[in-house]
């Protein structure tokens, strides 16, 4: 069995004694096939009993042990040490707590903010069957209907996407990817009856339209759930349900309209159409400076060659 010395650089922080987080280094002999969690357990049992982290099922289904390994959020129990070796295996493997959540101690973070957001956004099915009639009859759900939400029900709330999310990093009040995914899962469950209310909540400020679609949540989901597809679907749903008053929705509408009118985005009036007259007032100074550099988008956009074809498509689709 392949074996080698590996260094682990682990972030430590005990609020009772430490002013700020620091790093501890451990060098241990590791066999190929060993996971990061087994390394953490080994360190705790043999070298440093105070090292603090969560772990429970050790099989990738409970979501307890998410940490950042070399900067990326992962489940410690399903991450192989060998896959994290860099610099020819000589660089230490960096292990840190998840981002965007308060650290309680060492690698252990508080995930209450995630649960609180689920609560605020009704992350549950509101069933069509009244309480007193429950248990007597199944809803009929086709396999295709189930398939729509199947992947979303894989979510184990490990917090990795929350930790990776770009918007979370700059706005703690942002709704967050797991909550949007849960909203998608509920709103596309054919047994649910409260989609309007849920969507009304998630389209409020700091909500659905604040996602920058950076795709970090999808890229680093520990269960490979296509979270962005869910977010896309919710935005479509906002239009289907006529919830088009938000800046995000008006922004999207502008793309739709411009493509029909000229085939090009009319960037010069995009702020006005997204944010309204007062909302875009603050953008004037920048616009003036850009004008001096000749960077202002043209007032009148050239129509693309054969714009008639695009309009024809629009007409046909509207039928």
């Amino acid at each position: 069995m392949e074996r080698r010395e590996v260094s682990f650089r682990i972030q430590r922080y005990n609020p009772q004694v430490d002013q700020t987080p620091f790093y501890d280094n451990f060098k241990i002999a590791v066999e190929k096939g060993i996971t990061i969690l087994r390394v953490l357990n080994h360190i705790k049992e043999q070298l440093e009993p105070r090292l603090t982290f969560r772990a429970f099922c050790q099989a990738g289904i409970c979501g307890s042990c998410a940490v950042r390994v070399n900067g990326i959020s992962k489940l410690a129990c399903t991450t192989q040490v060998w896959d994290e070796l860099t610099g020819g295996g000589d660089d230490p493997i960096l292990i840190e707590p998840l981002s965007n959540l308060p650290v309680i101690r060492d690698l252990l973070v508080d995930i209450d903010p995630v649960i609180e957001k689920l609560r605020q956004n009704q992350g549950w099915v509101v069933p069509s069957i009244p309480e007193e009639k429950m248990g007597f009859k199944e809803h009929a759900v086709s396999d295709d209907e189930f398939e729509v939400i199947n992947a979303a029900t894989d979510c184990i709330l490990c917090g990795s996407c929350y930790s990776e999310c770009s918007m979370m990093g700059v706005n703690p009040r942002y709704i967050s990817p797991p909550v949007l995914l849960k909203t998608f899962r509920m709103n596309n469950d054919t047994r649910d009856t409260d989609g309007d209310e849920r969507l009304r909540r998630v389209t409020a400020d700091h909500g659905l339209w604040d996602c920058t679609h950076c795709y970090r949540c999808v890229e680093h989901c520990t269960k490979n759930i296509p979270i962005m597809d869910g977010i896309h679907r919710l935005r479509e749903e906002a239009f289907e349900r006529g919830m088009t008053g938000s800046e995000g929705a008006r922004h999207a509408q502008a793309f739709f309209d411009d493509t029909r009118n000229t085939g090009r985005l009319r960037e010069v009036t995009l702020p006005l159409r997204t944010k309204g007259v007062t909302g875009s007032f603050g953008m004037l100074p920048l616009a003036l400076k850009m004008a001096l550099k000749g960077r202002t988008p043209p007032l009148f956009v050239h129509r693309i060659a054969g714009i008639e074809r695009i309009r024809e498509i629009y007409r046909k689709l509207e039928k």
């Binding site: 549950w124 099915v125 069933p127 069957i129 429950m134 248990g135 009859k137 199944e138 809803h139 759900v141 086709s142 396999d143 189930f146 939400i149 199947n150 029900t153 509920m186 469950d189 047994r191 649910d192």
Partner: peptide, 9 residues
Amino acid sequence: ENLGAPFSR
């Protein structure tokens, strides 16, 4: 099932 548990069908 009535409460929203997803079952295979």
